[in-house]
Design a protein around this nucleic acid. Sequence first.
DNA 1: TTGTAAGCGTTATCAT
DNA 2: ATGATAACGCTTACAA
Lengths: 334, 334
Amino acid sequence: MATIYEVSALAGVSLASVSRVMNNHEHVSEKTKLKVLAAMETLNYRPNAIARSLATSRSDCIGILVSELHGPFYGDMLTGIESELRAASKHAIIAAGHSDEHTEKDGIDFLIDRNCDALILLVDAVSDEYLIELSKGSTPIVVVNRFIPEIAENCFYLDNVLGGYLATNYLINQGHKQIAYISGPENKQDSNDRIEGHKKALAEANISFNKSLCFEGDFLTTSGQAGIHHFIEKKVPFTAIACANDEMASGAIKGAREHQLSIPNDCSIIGFDNIFITEYLFPQLSTIDYPITEMAKMSARWILKNVYKNKSLTINNLFLPSLILRESILSNIK
Amino acid sequence: MATIYEVSALAGVSLASVSRVMNNHEHVSEKTKLKVLAAMETLNYRPNAIARSLATSRSDCIGILVSELHGPFYGDMLTGIESELRAASKHAIIAAGHSDEHTEKDGIDFLIDRNCDALILLVDAVSDEYLIELSKGSTPIVVVNRFIPEIAENCFYLDNVLGGYLATNYLINQGHKQIAYISGPENKQDSNDRIEGHKKALAEANISFNKSLCFEGDFLTTSGQAGIHHFIEKKVPFTAIACANDEMASGAIKGAREHQLSIPNDCSIIGFDNIFITEYLFPQLSTIDYPITEMAKMSARWILKNVYKNKSLTINNLFLPSLILRESILSNIK
DNA sequence: TTGTAAGCGTTATCAT
DNA sequence: ATGATAACGCTTACAA
C-alpha cells in the first residue's frame, strides 16, 4: 500500500499539500492539485483510514448497536439506517447487544473505541441513567425504540400505548368483549406500553381487565403458541386475541390450528409491528403498523444533521402506529 | 480519556512497561505489573484501539460483508458468525454489499481499510477472478455460499445441486410427474445449481424438462406469486411446484390461494432453505434444509484457526442439504 | 500557496 | 527487567 509519503515524493510536493488535496482544502493551486492527483492515480493510493482516524479522532463511521442481528424488526432497522447513511457516503459499523447489560456496554465501548462519529443504539438492558451519562460524553448518541425524557431529542420512538389501544379498540368495535392478550416480557418498556394501551381501550368500553385472559410471552413465536394453549386449557372463553407482536401472533395462529380453532371464524386475532410475513400467513394477519424503516432512517438523519451538519434536514422523534386490516378479524356483532 | 502516558507517569514506569503489561508480555516484574495495573484502574484507562491498530496493523476485528442486512438467510448468517467470534472475544464489523459490484468492492475496501484481521464475504456481484486476486492480498478472506475452485479451502458452500435434486426427487417419488419449477435469477450460482439438481432428478425419472413449466423468479416472495399466476394463466398442467427458495414458495402459496387452489390437495409444493417462517405458513412448508448457521460458524472458525492460530479447530467446507417434510406435499400415486 | 514539524496513542527494537 | 526512541500514516498549526 502506498503511503502519503510516496505520493508526496512522486508529486514533488510536501506531505501537507497532499493532505490538502485529499481533503479538498481551498488554497491549493490547480497545478499542485493536478500533480498530486496524478501521483495518487499512478500509485493507486488509498489513504489509511486508521492513521487518519488517529490524527483526527473522527472516522466517517456511525456505530450501530442492535439487540440481535436477525429477525425482521432488527433487519429492517439496520437496512433503513444503512441505506440512509450510504446515501450520505457514511459507513455503518454494526454490533450486537443481545439484550444483555454487559454485552451492550461492551458493544458501546467497542464502537466508541473505533472512533465512531456517533452511535445509534437499540438497547434494552442498560439503564436510562447509563444512557443519559453516555450522552454527555464526546460521542453523540441516539436511542431508538425507547424514550428517555432527559434526552428526548435523541430518542426515536413509537407511541406504543396508542398502538395497543388501536388494536384492542378495533376488536371492541367489531363486537368483541372477551379479548385475550398475549403480552411481551414484563421487563421491556414497549411491552408495558402496549398492554397499557390495551387496558385503556378496555376501560373506555367499560370492559374490566381480566387477568386470566392475559398471558406473558417473550415476543417469540413459540410463546404465542403457548399462550393460546394456555387460554384453551384454562377454559377461559374468548372471541379474540390481541398479541403484542406479529411473531407471537404467528405462533398463536399455529396453535389455534392445532386446537382445530378456525381463524377468524372461531377467534379473531391481531398482531403488532406489521412485519413482512404477516401478508403470507393464513389468514393474512391484521396488525398495527410500526414504521420501523422510517424511524431507522430518521435516527440516521439526526446524525447527518447534528454531527455532519447537514442543516437542511428536518427531524421528528415520535412515530405513530396505524391499523392494518387484513383477514384475521371477524365481526362479532350479532 | 486517559492515555498510556498518564498511566506510565502515575505508575512511575516507562511507556514500554505499560505496553508490556497491557499485552501480557513475559519478563515484567510482578512489582511493576501491579503498579501499572493500579494506575490503569485509578485512571480508568482504556487503550486506544485506533492507535494500537495503527502501530500493529491488526485490529482483533473481522469484517463481514453480506448482500443485505435483512432477511432470514442473512440474519441467521450474521448471528452465526457473530456468536462464534464473540465466544473468541473477537469483534465483527458488518457491512452490506447489496449484490452490486461497486458497492461490494467498496465494502471490501472499507473493511480492509479498517485493518480487519480477516474478511468473511457473502458476495455475488464481484467476479471469481477478483476474489482470487483479493485472496492473495495481506488480509485473509473466506467466501461463504460460493465455491471457487482456485481458493476452495477458503470457500464454504452448500451442495445446491444435491438440494435441488432432493426436492424434485421426493416429489417424483410421491408420484408427481408434472412438476413446475420457480427458479432464482439466472445470474446467481446457487440458482443455477439448484435447477440443475431439479433437472437431474427429472432426467433420472425419464421425465423430460419442460421449459414452459419453468419460471424465473428473483428469490423474493412476489416472484413466487407471479410464478404460480404465470403457470395458471398459461394453462400448463402441473401437480406440484418446486421453488428455489422458501420466500418464493411462500408467495406461491399465497398465489395459489388467490386462485382457489388448495395446497397440498390441488398442488404440492416444496421450498428451499428451511427459513424460520416455513413452520408458520399454512400449510407448513416442506423444504430443503440449508444449515446456514452451521456454515456461518464454520467460516468464523476457519479464521479463528488460520488467523488467530487456534490449531485445535477442525474445518469442513462442504455442507449438505437435507429434506424436511411438513404438510405441503401430498402423494399423487393413484 | 506551500512547507516544516509537532502531534495523535500505541508498539517494538534496541540498548542498558 | 526496564527505558529511550523510532516507527505507524495522517492532520494541522505555524512559518515562510
